[in-house]
């Protein structure tokens, strides 16, 4: 029950942030991929099954908001959630460097996937799309690490264990 409550709260906060504060930032050119940030954070904490479910639900909500390409975010975030969840079994999850790398790779993959749907300008558009991927990665990964660190401090316990499975929440 506690996990489901956290699941709903995390999804709600992510989607509200995306449609209010972060949408304003995106219009100014500052792209924070909060969908990836939340999915990676959740998958690190709750492992693969919950990670995939969280990614799917969050992606579906984002797809419904977008009017077109239903399933675009859902597919990418499901696979990312599952992949990060699986990797969290074998990585030191509370290492900021690990989190930074995971967030950077996940953001880059998600951005490349979503950019592919917008790529209609031929070769001329590739530069801008590459810039968008790099910008989102550079913005999201450090911010994500910061958010994870703050959340760990806030709950005053180690939410992220290591590969031996020392997570306090299971």
């Amino acid at each position: 029950m506690k996990v489901i409550g956290g699941f709903l709260l995390a999804a709600l906060v992510t989607l509200v942030m995306r449609s209010t504060v972060l949408a304003g930032l995106a219009a100014r050119g500052i792209v924070v991929d909060v969908l990836v940030l939340a999915t990676v954070a959740w998958s690190l904490r709750q492992r693969d099954a919950w990670g995939a479910t969280f990614g799917f639900v969050l992606g579906l909500a984002a797809d419904l908001d977008a009017s077109h390409w239903l399933g675009r975010h859902a597919l990418a975030l499901t696979l990312l959630g599952y992949g990060v969840g699986r990797l969290s079994n074998t990585l030191v999850r509370d290492s900021p460097l690990t989190q930074l790398l995971l967030l950077a790779i996940a953001t880059a993959l998600h951005q490349v996937w979503t950019s592919a749907f917008d790529a209609s300008g031929g070769v001329a558009g590739l530069g801008w799309l590459a810039g968008r991927v790099v910008l989102a990665t550079v913005t999201t990964a450090p911010l994500g690490v910061l958010v994870l660190l703050l959340s760990q401090l806030f709950v005053r316990r180690r939410g992220y264990g290591n590969a031996s499975g020392s997570s306090t929440t299971g």
């Binding site: 693969d48 399933g71 675009r72 859902a74 499901t78």
Partner: peptide, 14 residues
């Protein structure tokens, strides 16, 4: 099984 189902559903929606 779960991730396969989600992925299949997403592809179907696409």
């Amino acid at each position: 099984v779960l991730v396969t189902a989600y992925a299949a559903l997403s592809l179907l929606m696409l």
